[in-house]
Amino acid sequence: MAALFSGRGDTGGTPPPTILRVALALWGALAVLLIVRAAVSWSDFDRLRRRLLGQQGMTPAEAGSAAQTLLLVNLAIAVALAAGYAGLAWLVRKRQWWARIAVTVLTVLHLVMILGTMSMSASNLVVSVLALGAWACSWRAESTEWLNGDR
């Protein structure tokens, strides 16, 4: 993992510019945050189950099953997004120019999901800032020149 952010590795001879290494680090941090946030959400299982009991009028068994399903879906989405961010960051580090476009599309889809839920919690704000920061760093001129150079 350290080689992803360092100036070493198989990159065609020249290390990535600092601004691109910042983007890679932000994508990595975002991937870790998504997994940690999904794992921590399981600690609120009982609270979610009680909310479903009170607001949805479910039986205790139905509420427990619905809570588990919601948390599993949340975990699956977090794992898919984290794998996408980490994998595409690794491919950008390997000078695959198309990976930057793919991670941009992933970032847009992720931000649309956040906005679509109308849930601007503190953690969603941090996720949004990390995603937008990584995106902005990856499209700077220095990043573009490095990705397009030495072909």
Rank of each mutant, 00 (worst) to 15 (best):
A76G: 12
W98K: 05
G87M: 09
W98G: 01
Q96D: 08
Y85D: 06
G87N: 02
V73T: 11
L71P: 06
W98S: 03
A89D: 05
A82C: 11
A89Q: 08
Q96S: 07
V92C: 07
L71K: 12
W97D: 13
G87H: 02
A80Y: 01
W98D: 01
A86H: 08
A78V: 03
A80M: 08
K94P: 03
L88F: 12
A83V: 15
G87C: 11
W90Q: 04
R95V: 07
N74K: 07
L75P: 00
Y85T: 09
L70H: 05
R93F: 00
R95H: 03
W97K: 14
V79F: 15
A83W: 15
N74Y: 13
L71Q: 13
K94Y: 02
A86F: 15
A78Y: 13
R95Y: 00
L81F: 14
A82N: 10
V92F: 08
V92I: 14
Y85V: 11
V79Y: 15
L91F: 03
R93K: 14
Y85G: 09
L91E: 09
I77N: 08
I77V: 15
A89R: 02
A83M: 13
Q96H: 10
L91V: 00
Q96T: 11
A99I: 06
L72T: 09
R95C: 04
W98P: 01
A76D: 13
V92N: 09
A99N: 05
A86E: 02
G84T: 08
A83E: 11
K94D: 12
I77L: 14
G84W: 09
R93L: 01
W97S: 12
N74F: 11
L70R: 10
A89S: 11
L81P: 00
A99Q: 01
R93Q: 06
A78L: 05
W90P: 00
G87Q: 03
L70F: 02
L75R: 01
A99V: 02
